[in-house]
């Protein structure tokens, strides 16, 4: 009988699901939902539907991401640090450093054979995260998806000195009023973000191959700015949002394989694909 493994990565903004047998057979990405992770189960349902599988047919489910706690449909919770390490190594076996730019945090992970050996995460606030980009895009009246391309066209990046998201937003609006062209302004924002991320990641002693993942990896302007700052070429996975969920599914498979090898039966939880209720 085929064994199926699912990984669900419940981030602050998006929920990502991957279903695997020996490879990825289905995936789905949807919003986590404004009401505290309420939609996470819907994202899983959709992925299952894609391959016409019942939730009960999944051998093992691993949840990760900030919403991993108290998920009623997972057998185990593993942090996103370990999951990204595993997931990235699946696409880039030689990877040594991962930069993940997520919705509410960004992190640097040093890995060896798919396992984290050290990591850093942004400490205090939204500076250096996807949320920062969302707020600035909003202030400029552009779509976040367009931001990377717009930034690439800026030849004279504006200097943005504020780290605080709220103050940076004010600074951007003021620069716009001064007549700084939009391209240069966006290029400046991406550069300031890249500065902040690279300063943090450099504490890890970056080694090649360097992979960027998370929503921020979809921003071509940011990836270029980061690559310039760090002085390394950066690899981007085919779908940067999915590496955490892929890693979660693979770590679940590892657990099942190990138990089979050790001759012990796999410990699963009683799980159901219900809405997450936290109140």
């Amino acid at each position: 009988m085929t064994q199926y493994f699912a990984g669900i990565d419940i981030g602050s903004t998006m929920t990502k699901v991957v279903i695997m047998d020996s490879g990825i057979i289905a995936s789905n990405i949807g919003p986590t939902g404004p009401e505290q992770r309420r939609l996470a189960n819907k994202v899983m349902e959709k992925a299952l539907k894609e391959v016409d599988l019942a939730f009960e047919a999944i051998t093992y489910v691993v949840a990760t991401g900030y919403g991993r706690i108290n998920v009623p449909f997972a057998d185990k919770q593993i942090t996103e640090i370990s999951c990204h390490a595993k997931g990235v190594a699946n696409f880039f076996p030689e990877a040594k450093t991962i930069i993940e730019v997520g919705g509410q945090d960004c992190k640097g992970i040093k890995i060896n054979n798919g396992k984290p050996v050290d990591f850093v995460m942004n400490d205090k606030c939204a500076a250096g995260t996807g949320r920062f980009l969302e707020i600035i895009a909003d202030a400029l009246g552009i779509k976040i998806k367009e931001m990377g391309e717009i930034g690439l066209q800026g030849n004279n990046p504006a200097k943005i000195s504020n780290i605080c998201t709220v103050f940076a937003e004010q600074e951007v609006v003021a620069r716009l009023a001064e007549g700084v062209p939009l391209n240069d302004l966006v290029a400046g924002i991406l550069e300031s973000l890249a500065n902040r991320i690279s300063r943090m990641v450099n504490r890890l002693h970056v080694a090649e191959e360097v992979v960027v993942t998370g929503g921020g990896a979809k921003n071509v302007g940011l990836v270029k700015a980061l690559s310039d700052k760090l002085g390394y070429a950066l690899a981007v996975p085919p779908e940067p949002l999915l590496t955490g969920a892929v890693g979660a599914a693979l770590l679940g498979k590892d657990i099942a394989d190990k138990d089979l090898q050790d001759g012990v039966s796999l410990q699963t939880k009683e799980r159901s694909l219900k809405e997450i209720k936290i109140f």
């Binding site: 900030y66 593993i78 942090t79 996103e80 640090i81 370990s82 945090d105 396992k115 984290p116 050996v117 050290d118 990591f119 995460m121």
Partner: peptide
């Protein structure tokens, strides 16, 4: 506590494996 927990758990996964 939430953000500390993720860091601590990741650290424990790292040194435990």
């Amino acid at each position: 506590i939430g953000r500390l927990r993720t860091r601590i758990q990741a650290f424990l996964e790292m040194i435990g494996s």
